[in-house]
Design a binder for these strands. Structure first.
Lengths: 336, 336
DNA sequence: GTTGACTCTCAAAACGTTTTGGAGAATGTT
DNA sequence: AACATTCTCCAAAACGTTTTGAGAGTCAAC
């Protein structure tokens, strides 16, 4: 409601004293401090955010870019993550703004808009690519940021990521241990780091087992992409008996393809992400997911530490992948 | 990068002239205007957001409160909606900040924090209650806002809502037309407007048909809430043959209850929200949803018009509800 | 040659806060 | 009594922009 000036005037004090009293400086007497705080409380005084931001040269804002390109924005968990992140940032006086990328505009432009206008103190990046121009830009500007997913940047940067390589390698080895020999991979676009590293995990396992790595098809990271990629693999002369899919959405598309071609579920399948709807598919979709509680809080913590100037090397979290076993991975390796 | 002062100095002009040239005022000659713009472009100049906000007394921000209380934050569509809204707000120079409500803090407090600190120009409210203290507060402060869902406030305010009354009445009448006579309702918490109005729609239809309105159970708007409420109705001496559920999540919980008690799907069921996972339940869940394209853009438009001072009466949108027919509503009314 | 109108430019104020660098009074020390 | 120290307080500057009110200069009309 009120101004610092008005508040000071009504108390017969200077603006300085009131400001410092509210901030708890020791150079204002306990008596006046109490008096000022009481008056501020009564007047419902809240410092004007814009003024403080200008003076302190901080935006008190963090932006997260939302890629609106392929289908929908993110998995259902994503909003929960953002919410948790925003909550913990708020405890430190920072607010989280969402920055969707309109079609026709590059994500880089959005970053620039926020950074050059000094609208944010840090950024949160999702859907990283192996070579990510946003990362390069922010690094060149020295703006703190954290990514969800790694990149191939030579300069280290803070990130949180799941160990897709280990996860997909383990999933493939498990199929092998169950007797499967023709294990296919439905890959996402290889420009994305997560898609590339998952493919490499599958590939590594296949090579360890002395198996050929030609049963691989790539598609958009959507239901339709998985559907088309699965059809492609099913057209092969010697079909796969098991499929390791880059994402649950693609796995659900693959299930549709199997139903259409086979009429049933003769082929084992596993996805990644643990989408809620995976529990309802038929057969219920076995999947993997990144371990770790309270991802949003972790992102917030990394952001705050990055803003505080901690070196990037200390701000990198690689989480293990765990299996979420349902039914879809249990088909025996005997299909035609 | 640069300052207005530095830019002006390098051009041999005053700050005033540079500022006005960039803003396109007519009282600066076309020649200098071009020269200034070129230099600004070259220097990558972007006005400092905090300074402009302070001077113009606008926050250039809109906040949306995210209730983190029951389970997760919102339906999957919700993030898409927010993203669309943010995108259209951004075109008008406004950014959308998400304001999650930590447990133990009231939504009202969050509103106050944003409004009293002059951190926002407007607010977006979701999950309205019939008597909503946030609405009362914002109205008393004269802060523009738009709600997702109506309230029982005597003073009109801008909103977007689905016509839950008509939708649930229609669904109930359709069950009646299909021969059902014992049509139950699984209701959400009645303090929420949407839950109340959906219950009233069911109730109105039952009364029109001359049927008793005692087959109603209330629960939390979650899977578990629907499960428990359904069990309650199934314990009745004369079971319902059809269930109209306040939300899809509750409907999915009810399906689980039916499976446990009946072993199969002897009872017709319909939900509301069109959750993606509804397509994967067994049987696939029939549901309803609000009509209207591009909800996010509509919210943004209403917000901008509210900020511009348009009267609330012109900013109220009540959308029709449409059926999304799958299989779960087709059971004949012959169950035990 | 004065007046008025018009064009272009700018100095200064304002937005509301935080921070700097003291000033004045009280207290303690020699 | 003189000097240092501590305790409270404050005037003024600064953050970077927008806006106000006015000052130069030019031109045409009287």
């Amino acid at each position: 409601m009120a101004n610092l000036k008005q508040l000071a005037h009504s108390l017969g004090l200077s603006i300085t004293t009131v400001s410092r009293a509210l901030d708890g400086y020791s150079d204002v007497s306990a008596a006046t401090r109490a008096r000022v705080r009481e008056a501020a409380e009564a007047a419902g005084y809240r410092p004007n955010a814009s003024a403080r931001r200008l003076r302190k040269q901080r935006a008190e804002l963090v932006a997260v870019t939302l890629p609106s390109d392929p289908g929908h924005v993110g998995p259902p968990h994503f909003l929960d993550m953002l919410s948790g992140c925003a909550e913990h940032l708020a405890a430190a006086g920072l607010n989280l703004v969402i920055a969707p990328v309109p079609r026709g505009v590059s994500e880089l432009e959005i970053c620039q808009r926020f950074v050059d206008g000094r609208r944010v103190d840090a950024m949160l990046l999702v859907r990283t690519k192996r070579k990510d121009e946003r990362v390069e830009y922010l690094q060149s500007r020295g703006i703190p940021f954290v990514t969800n997913g790694r990149t191939e940047s030579l300069i280290p940067h803070p990130f949180i990521d799941g160990d897709g390589f280990a996860g997909f390698r383990a999933a493939t080895l498990r199929f092998h241990a169950a007797g499967h020999r023709r294990i296919g991979h439905i890959a996402g676009p290889q420009e994305y780091y997560f898609a590339h590293v998952r493919r490499r995990g599958w590939q590594a396992a296949m090579e360890e087992c002395g198996l050929a790595t030609d049963l691989c098809a790539e598609g958009a990271p959507l239901e339709q992409g998985g559907y088309l990629a699965a059809l492609e693999l099913l057209r092969q002369p010697s079909r796969p008996t098991a499929l390791v899919c880059a994402t649950d959405e693609m796995a659900i598309g693959a299930l549709r393809a199997l139903r259409e071609v086979d009429g049933g579920s003769q082929i084992s399948i596993i996805g990644h992400d643990d989408l809620p709807m995976g529990a309802f598919t038929s057969p219920p979709l076995s999947t993997m997911r990144m371990t770790g509680e309270n991802l949003g809080a972790t992102f917030a913590s990394l952001l705050l530490r990055a803003i505080a100037g901690e070196p990037a090397e200390d701000l990198q979290e690689l989480h293990a992948i765990e299996f979420v076993d349902r039914d879809s991975h249990r088909c025996p390796p005997v299909a035609a």
